[in-house]
Design a protein around this nucleic acid. Structure first.
Length: 757
RNA sequence: UGGGGUGUCGCCAAGCGGUAAGGCAACUGGUUUUGGUCCAGUCAUUCGGGGGUUCGAAUCCCUCCUCCCCAUCCA
């Protein structure tokens, strides 16, 4: 199965095919005002990915038009993120601030065209004048200023003669536009602030809506890809480029849904709060969804890129399950990373019949991972196992060590429990066991069958390490604020024990701690004297899941909650009543003309449709068929156009209906002909003639074609005969396809039914 | 409420008038010295609801509904 393309790539391909651009140029344009998160990774993957796939290029541009929020450290974080993900931007990093002079010139041009003006209303007044979603706004009196005055004022704004807020430059568009963004949007504001790059050179700064489209244009961007919340801004984007008369090729904006992941937050504000209020240790806290955090947690670039690929690109707001991300990192690390043994909660085991010590050979990788490498594992009388791997009263299906059940020490021997030693409080402090000398891993002749092999470390040589266990940051799927924070998102284990090899040999920085999960040597706090490992993600754990499920079902039974899925009943809203004229028309259509209610309703309520219908009716009196075509097909064309803009006329539609009535063509063909009429405005008869679309109703012509289809699809015939009646449509479809749609579908249906009996 | 979007499995997501892709999750069973991996299999008679057009509709038409975005001198 070939991979399906996302809608952006479809657009890019079409544009390329049409020759709209000679090269695809995209850009990743963050504002350097915070650390990039995995949502940015999605955007990076899209922009750089598309550029790579279509042999174009992608720029990295800092959209730094707001001096009060931006900083170089964020620029560095952004560059870092892109590089870490493995992408290379074209040329140098771009900055919108580099284009300030050019953008200013465009503003002057707009003023000269009378398309922009300096407004001196206060901030509150501007807001008030803008109106609401329901009421139109009204234009400022300053909109009437002369070009000369505007030019003078703008120049002086630039020179820093005015205070913040005293004036703004606005586009002169439409104060009553339904799109609020188009109500004379601000182009420039005065800001006496130090810009991290341009310093104090500027006193005015362009707004996003002005700076962004122009920056794209300046860079020769072809596809300006952004997130859904900018949909309303697209009109300004186009307005600026069009009124400035910037010639093709010019960029067009396309929007996709931003990434949401459950159990975390993605908004800059909330992330900043976590950092500032010290709920986390910093932007790179391993629980953060930032690139820096994910990276410190131990995620690989490959896993994140693969995640971005898996979730796809679409326009529906969505919330991806964090399990999908976790799958990606497990999947990546499974084949890459050495397995070592670590005991998080040690329980001492003394093997009473073992004397001395030895070194066991242990491969770093299991059989199914095609990688080489092994280490020596010290073994002696005293070892530690995971406390969870022993049970005095094992639940059903417990595979590990019990009083009766022996277990294998991974890479070593099988042991049997002899005695359990407890302290005063009843806590198990030690297990006395015996080993089976002939059960040595790799040369087992003992014949003992065990259900499981567990990890362990040798007491004398084990190294103490700190292990940081991370869990999801929030307790609920769609967290609102800090009140939803998970208090157990970080558990620090100071005295975990690991086998010596991973400190002394250090075969890698990422490991699988056997049966536990994937871990990463913390890049900041790790040292050989004080090793620190971050848990990246746990292994899938079907045992734990099973236990949880049993517990949950016990709870459910005791609570006896009836789990009934209620079908949601949808309440229909009110339909606006018909006017008197519409009422009369409706009655005429349903009565005299015999149309069904639905079609009549559609026609009556739309002035354009009803007049089109009635005009057609004058040419060919076949109300029902005509009404169906007008209400269904013509309606589509008339949705965003006036009748006068159409290439076809009511008379031509009447002609089409006549052919339908005379059974010269089938409904299917009629649609095809209609499409052609929409495009070319040719007469239906002409189209039918030219393309030979006359319907085939002769069974002796159709029959052999059906036979052929049946012969070619023996398995589907079988499935159909076995009761899969859905396949009926498949056969009809195949026959129709074979005849170029010309076969009379009714005849085909009858014949297919017969032949498939 | 005006405008712009969006609704297909528990979560993502293909699909563009002719057999409802795929991934995650979940669930069987097999292999396994990781309760991991791997392998085999199961998982949408139905696409937000209701009508209509059509031989045939997730796809076209009408209508209602849901959720998201827009009234920062943020981006």
């Amino acid at each position: 199965m070939n991979e399906s393309k996302d809608f952006l790539r479809v657009i890019v391909e079409e544009d390329l095919k049409k020759g709209k651009y000679s090269e695809v140029v995209t850009r990743f344009p963050p504002e350097p005002n915070g650390f990039p998160h995995i949502g940015h990774a999605k955007s990076i993957a899209i922009n750089f990915g598309i550029a790579r796939d279509y042999k174009g290029h992608c720029n990295l541009r800092m959209d730094d038009t707001n001096p009060t929020t931006e900083d170089t450290r964020y620029v560095e974080a952004l560059k870092d993120a892109v590089e870490w993900l493995g992408f290379q931007w074209e040329g140098n990093v771009r900055y919108t601030s580099d284009y300030f002079p050019e953008i200013y010139e465009y503003a002057v041009q707009l003023v000269k065209m009378g398309k922009a003006y300096v407004d001196s209303l206060s901030e509150e007044e501007i807001r008030e004048y803008r109106g609401t979603v329901m009421e139109p706004g009204r234009r400022s009196v300053y909109a009437e200023r002369s070009v000369e005055e505007n030019l003078d004022l703008l120049e002086r704004m630039k020179e820093g003669e005015f205070k913040d807020g005293e004036h703004v430059l606005r586009a002169k568009i439409d104060m009553s536009a339904a799109n609020m963004k188009m109500r004379d949007p601000l182009l420039y504001r005065i800001r006496h602030a130090h810009h991290y790059r341009t310093g104090d050179a500027w006193h005015i700064y362009p707004m996003y809506d002005f700076g962004h489209c122009l920056s794209d244009y300046i860079e020769g961007v072809s596809h300006s890809i952004c997130t859904l919340e900018f949909e309303n801004n697209r009109d300004i984007y186009d307005w600026v480029l069009e009124t400035l008369g910037l010639s093709a090729p010019r960029p067009y904006q396309h929007e996709f849904a931003r990434l949401g992941i459950n159990y975390t937050v993605m908004s800059k504000r909330k992330l900043l709060e976590l950092v500032n209020e010290k709920y986390v240790s910093g932007w790179d806290d391993p629980r953060m969804p930032t690139i820096a955090g994910l990276r410190r947690r131990g995620y690989t670039p490959e896993s994140i890129l693969n995640f971005c690929h898996q979730i796809g690109i679409a326009k529906a707001n969505s919330m991806v399950d964090v399990a999908q991300l976790e799958f990606c990192i497990r999947d990546d690390l499974n084949t890459k990373v050495p397995r070592v043994m670590c005991v998080l909660d040690p329980l001492k085991v003394t093997i009473e019949n073992y004397e001395g010590s030895e070194e066991l050979d242990a491969s770093y990788y299991p059989e199914d991972v095609p990688k080489e490498g092994s280490r020596k594992l010290p073994f002696s009388r005293e070892i530690f196992i995971e406390r969870e791997d022993f049970s005095e009263n094992p639940p059903q299906g417990f595979f590990r060590l019990t009083l009766e059940q022996p277990v294998r020490l991974k890479h070593a021997y099988i042991i049997t429990c002899k005695e359990v030693i407890k302290d005063g409080s009843g806590t198990i402090t030690e297990i006395i066991a015996t080993y089976h000398p002939e059960s040595k891993s790799g040369s087992d002749t003992s014949g003992i069958k065990v259900k499981s092999a567990i990890q362990w470390v040798d007491a004398r040589s084990a190294k103490t390490v700190e292990v940081r266990l991370y869990d999801r940051l929030y307790t609920c799927e769609a967290p609102e604020g800090v009140e939803d924070l998970n208090p157990d998102s970080l558990k620090v284990i100071k005295n975990a024990l690991v086998e010596p090899a991973l400190i002394t040999e250090k075969p890698d920085v990422r490991f699988q701690f056997e049966r536990e999960g994937y871990f990463y040597a913390d890049p900041v706090d790790y040292s050989d004297e004080h090793p620190v490992f971050n848990k990246i993600v746990g292994l899938k754990d079907s045992w734990n899941k099973k236990i949880e499920r049993i517990e949950a079902s016990v709870d459910r039974i005791s609570a006896s909650v009836p789990r009934i899925k209620a079908k949601i009943v949808q309440i229909d809203g009110e339909v606006s009543p018909m006017s008197e004229a519409e009422q009369a028309r409706f009655e005429k259509y349903t009565g005299e003309l015999n149309l069904n209610n639905e079609v009549a309703n559609t026609l009556t309520r739309d002035e354009k449709l009803s007049s089109f219908f009635e005009a057609g009716l004058a040419d060919h009196n076949s109300p029902v068929t005509l009404a169906n075509i007008v209400a269904n097909e013509v309606a589509r064309e008339l949705k965003e156009k006036e009748a006068s803009e159409l290439k076809f006329t009511p008379a031509q539609i009447a002609e089409l209906v006549k052919m339908l009535d005379d059974e010269i063509i089938s409904n299917k063909i009629a649609k095809q002909v209609f499409e052609e009429m929409v495009q070319s405005g040719k007469n239906p008869a002409q189209i039918v003639e030219a393309q030979g679309l006359v319907q085939i109703s002769n069974p002796s012509v159709i029959g052999p074609i059906i036979d052929e289809v049946i012969a070619k699809n023996p398995d589907n015939v079988e499935k159909y005969k076995a009761g899969n009646t859905k396949l009926f449509g498949f056969f009809v479809g195949q026959v129709l396809k074979a005849t170029g749609g010309k076969a009379n579908p009714q005849v085909v249906n009858d014949l297919v039914t017969q032949k498939l009996q």
